[in-house]
Write a protein that binds this DNA or RNA. Structure first.
Lengths: 153, 153
DNA sequence: TCCATTATCTACAATGATTGTTGAAAAACA
DNA sequence: TGTTTTTCAACAATCATTGTAGATAATGGA
């Protein structure tokens, strides 16, 4: 995602106004790698601006999404998450315990819909969600993590 | 998914009661390949039993999920979808226009998290959602479908 | 078959995430 | 600085889903 300064520029140049609230949200998102929900962006922003409303956060997040600066993401954790990493094609790691989401920096160019299996769909993209346990949620086995299990695909 | 008769058996043997509503829901799910939402199961069931409540549908769907007969699925269409196909490992095709969901009967045993990209996650499974246009939503080009585009992964 | 037990039913209210509305306030640009 | 237009915060409303409660029905045994 771009810096708050670049986003300011971008907002102005697209006829959007740049307010203290928006700058605050830009700052919160900057470098956030945890794919926050609107709620958690609001919680962080509230630390700087107590009166900022959740509505404003949603609004700004969807403005950013419209400009292609972040991507709304639904990985089945009940809320929409926002991914500020739009530059590198990537997939996602989701913790099935705590819901933590991280980017998986890899592409899978060999991934194809097998011949005849497409049911007539004109497929344009694929998203992979890898599910497992994040480092924090793993049971410790004699001081280190339990052995890695086989990926079921 | 099992037949209504088998499900009746299964429900009884797990201390659940078999009611007319439940049988109706079993019948509706039987052979449904479109991954219906609770709402659409309710709509179909209502054709046979006008008074059946949405709550009952949810309840029965989650009973079936608990018994492993169907799988709740979130593919980002705003509602939970239910997949009666639990026997064959598979992934999903989602229409980005109408939200139609279909099974993609294929497994990708070669799909691995690249060495060092797992960020410490202990990955156990992967789900792939292929997005595109279903046959009904495709623009027609001189009588037949437009050419297939490249899958972006 | 009939009873007693226990689960399930429907109707209704409540939840949590998200979106709509409105008048007040603030940013942009002349 | 003034005017225009957007955005703000507070509040109400929505949608999918879940909780509650008393009425009802399925089950298993007498």
């Amino acid at each position: 995602m771009r810096t708050p300064e670049e986003l300011t520029e971008l907002f102005r140049s697209t006829g959007r106004k740049v307010t203290a609230q928006r700058l605050c949200i830009f700052r919160v998102l900057q470098g956030d790698v945890t794919h926050p929900s609107a709620e958690s962006v609001h919680a962080l922003a509230s630390r700087e601006m107590e009166t900022i409303s959740l509505k404003t956060v949603y609004q700004t997040l969807y403005d950013l999404a419209e400009l292609g600066e972040i991507v709304p993401l639904d990985v089945g954790t009940g809320m929409t998450r926002f991914d500020p990493n739009v530059d590198d094609p990537h997939h996602h790691l989701v913790c099935r315990q705590c819901g933590r989401v991280r980017d998986l920096a890899a592409s899978f160019p060999e991934l194809r819909v097998p011949e005849g299996a497409d049911l007539g769909y004109q497929v344009g993209s694929a998203e992979i969600v890898f599910r497992g346990l994040c480092p924090e949620c793993q049971p410790e086995v004699r001081g280190r993590r339990a052995s890695v299990t086989q990926v079921q695909t």
